[in-house]
Simulated scan of single mutants.
Amino acid sequence: MKHAFEYDCLIVGGGIAGTVTAKQLQEKGYKVALIDERAPSRLHLAESLPATIEPLLQRLGLLELIKSPPHFKHTGMVSLWGSSVPQVMPSVAQHHGWKVDKWSIIEQIKSQLPSACVISGKVKAVAIQQNGWRCHIKKNGVKTDFEIHTRFLIDASGRQGYLPRVLNLHRHTFDKLSAFVANVTVHSPLDAQPSVVVEAFQDGWTLTSKISDNQSMVAIFCNQYTPEFSKFKYAKNWPEVANQTQWFKKVVSNGEFEVKILNASSHIVSQLSGKSWLLVGDAAMSFDPLSSHGMTTAIYMAEKAAHAIDRLFNGDNNALGQYSKTMADIYNSYLNELLGCYRLEQRFKDSKFWQSKQHFSDEEVRNIVG
């Protein structure tokens, strides 16, 4: 192993949180390495951003990126939640934010970074040193591994988290929510198709999220309490749920489509930063898709993480602690808000799924949310 490189910051993970953090730190004048091992997914998740995020995107130099295809304006959400009567929130005629192709915007941001900043590869091992970290890197397509020496290590590696495993940090998990997700073609585009439709059913809830005029992302959310949970891995079984809905059944046909299973649970890691490291995005905390907080909070965390690291490098030893407290407060507010949303659905009182979502069952989670 040879070729040692010196960096101010090394970021593990090239998703939205890691990429935005890299952009901010690079613009502040720091030498940054972004290690990204993931290939863009073929699955479109049809992410949503609220209109209220526009000042943040403007500050970060990202607002213009979402004003052209494949991104488009979010025209509103329809909810069948707590009632069989569709509730439009807000009016479909109003500007409600943006529908964003996450992988496209990640690539757009990466294109603004120096080519030497982005390294396609994997962090194989890390070791804490007196003045930072020694990181063993396996670069894609290259036989010889190399080392990077960095003052600071940022984990943006997603829900699995790299540093929590290395440092043996505990993860507080609220639930075991899973998402069965597919992209489907809408053969006969529906009139006034809303951007998002959420519908509750006996053992979970469904999501229909517009990708384009003739394509949608559809998902079934449930957990181990849902009868025959694993059968939703197969499209042929989806009509069983679709028949319990009004909108979802219009979009989900009896045709074949590929289904992916994703972790959709809420969690927060017990420690979000240390002397020379920090967690950002889903590596730090993750959000139930019902909240629509995931991508928004990841971008916000990236801005705050870069700011905290800059303050630390300029002598503010309280910067990382303040970052951690701010993020824990956000998670606290989110989890209480989420609980309130699930409690709005009272039609399925005998359902173990809804019972599990309407109270805190874990003492550690109750301690987090106060």
Rank of each mutant, 00 (worst) to 15 (best):
Glu107His: 13
Arg343Gly: 01
Val88Ile: 13
Gly370Ser: 12
Ile66Leu: 02
Gly13Arg: 02
Asp288Leu: 05
Asp350Arg: 01
Asn318Ser: 14
Lys31Leu: 08
Trp98Asn: 07
Thr296Ile: 04
Ala33Asp: 05
Leu272Tyr: 03
His136Phe: 07
Arg311Val: 01
Arg366Asn: 14
Ala306His: 03
Lys122Leu: 08
Leu45Ala: 01
Lys2Cys: 02
Ile137Cys: 03
Gln322Glu: 15
Leu262Arg: 15
Met295Ile: 10
Leu167His: 04
Lys233Thr: 11
Gly141Tyr: 05
Gln108Asp: 15
Ser333Leu: 15
Gly29Asp: 10
Pro227Phe: 14
Lys31Phe: 06
Ile299Glu: 05
Ile330Glu: 14
His136Tyr: 12
Gln130Gly: 03
Gln244Asn: 03
Phe229Ser: 07
Lys260Leu: 10
Ser120Cys: 08
Leu56Cys: 05
Gln346Thr: 09
Met285Leu: 08
Ala302Val: 08
Ala298Pro: 01
Trp238Lys: 06
Tyr234Gly: 00
Pro70Ser: 14
Tyr30Asn: 09
Ala182Leu: 08
Phe313His: 09
Met77Arg: 15
Gly97Asp: 10
Gln224Gly: 06
Ser188Glu: 13
Gly76Pro: 04
Gln24Ser: 03
Ile119Glu: 01
Ser91Glu: 15
Val365Glu: 10
Ser276Thr: 07
Glu64His: 11
Ala93Phe: 12
Lys139Val: 09
Glu47Thr: 07
Tyr323Cys: 10
Gln129Val: 00
Gln271Glu: 15
Gly370Val: 03
Val369Pro: 02
Lys304Asp: 10
Gly161Cys: 07
Cys9Arg: 00
